Simulated scan of single mutants.
Amino acid sequence: MDIGTRLFRTALLGLAGNRAARALSERYGMKLGASRFVAGETMEEAIAQAKRLNAEGIAVTLDFLGESVSSLEEAQVSERSYKELIRMISHEGINGNVSLKPTQFGLALDRKACEEGIRAVVNEAAGHGLFVRLDMEDSPWTDATIQIVQMLQDEGFSNVGTVIQAYLYRSGRDVQAMTANKMNLRLVKGAYKESRRIAFESKQEVDDNMRRLIKARLDSGIYTAIATHDQRIIRWVQSYTRMRAIPRSKFEFQMLYGIRNPLQRSLAREGYKVRSYVPFGRSWYPYFVRRLAERPANVMFVVKSVVWRN
Rank of each mutant, 00 (worst) to 15 (best):
residue 166 A to R: 05
residue 185 L to R: 04
residue 222 I to C: 05
residue 187 L to S: 09
residue 167 Y to S: 02
residue 227 A to P: 00
residue 216 A to C: 03
residue 158 S to P: 00
residue 168 L to R: 09
residue 159 N to V: 06
residue 218 L to H: 03
residue 213 L to C: 04
residue 187 L to T: 13
residue 176 Q to M: 13
residue 209 N to F: 04
residue 207 D to W: 09
residue 181 N to H: 10
residue 166 A to W: 07
residue 223 Y to C: 01
residue 202 S to L: 08
residue 206 V to A: 12
residue 169 Y to F: 15
residue 176 Q to I: 12
residue 213 L to Q: 02
residue 182 K to Y: 10
residue 193 K to H: 12
residue 230 D to I: 02
residue 203 K to L: 10
residue 188 V to E: 01
residue 200 F to A: 05
residue 165 Q to D: 09
residue 203 K to D: 11
residue 215 K to S: 10
residue 171 S to W: 06
residue 169 Y to A: 07
residue 195 S to Q: 12
residue 205 E to V: 06
residue 207 D to T: 12
residue 169 Y to S: 05
residue 215 K to N: 05
residue 191 A to Q: 03
residue 171 S to F: 09
residue 225 A to I: 06
residue 172 G to A: 11
residue 203 K to H: 11
residue 182 K to M: 10
residue 211 R to C: 05
residue 210 M to K: 01
residue 228 T to E: 00
residue 220 S to A: 09
residue 212 R to T: 08
residue 161 G to M: 03
residue 204 Q to C: 04
residue 182 K to C: 11
residue 191 A to M: 07
residue 171 S to Q: 06
residue 191 A to Y: 05
residue 228 T to P: 00
residue 200 F to G: 02
residue 175 V to C: 10
residue 201 E to L: 11
residue 209 N to K: 11
residue 197 R to E: 15
residue 197 R to L: 14
residue 223 Y to Q: 02
residue 162 T to N: 03
residue 177 A to V: 13
residue 191 A to D: 02
residue 229 H to W: 01
residue 212 R to F: 10
residue 230 D to C: 03
residue 187 L to H: 09
residue 160 V to E: 00
residue 189 K to N: 07
residue 160 V to Q: 00
residue 188 V to Y: 03
residue 176 Q to P: 04
residue 204 Q to D: 13
residue 214 I to L: 08
residue 189 K to F: 06
residue 180 A to E: 15
residue 183 M to S: 08
residue 165 Q to M: 09
residue 224 T to V: 09
residue 171 S to I: 12
residue 216 A to S: 09
residue 213 L to Y: 07
residue 210 M to Y: 15
residue 184 N to Q: 12
residue 169 Y to P: 02
residue 182 K to D: 14
residue 210 M to T: 07
residue 213 L to F: 07
residue 189 K to P: 03
residue 167 Y to T: 05
residue 188 V to P: 03
residue 204 Q to H: 11
residue 174 D to M: 11
residue 209 N to Q: 15
residue 170 R to H: 14
residue 223 Y to R: 10
residue 162 T to R: 00
residue 187 L to K: 09
residue 210 M to V: 03
residue 191 A to L: 11
residue 189 K to Q: 11
residue 202 S to V: 04
residue 202 S to I: 04
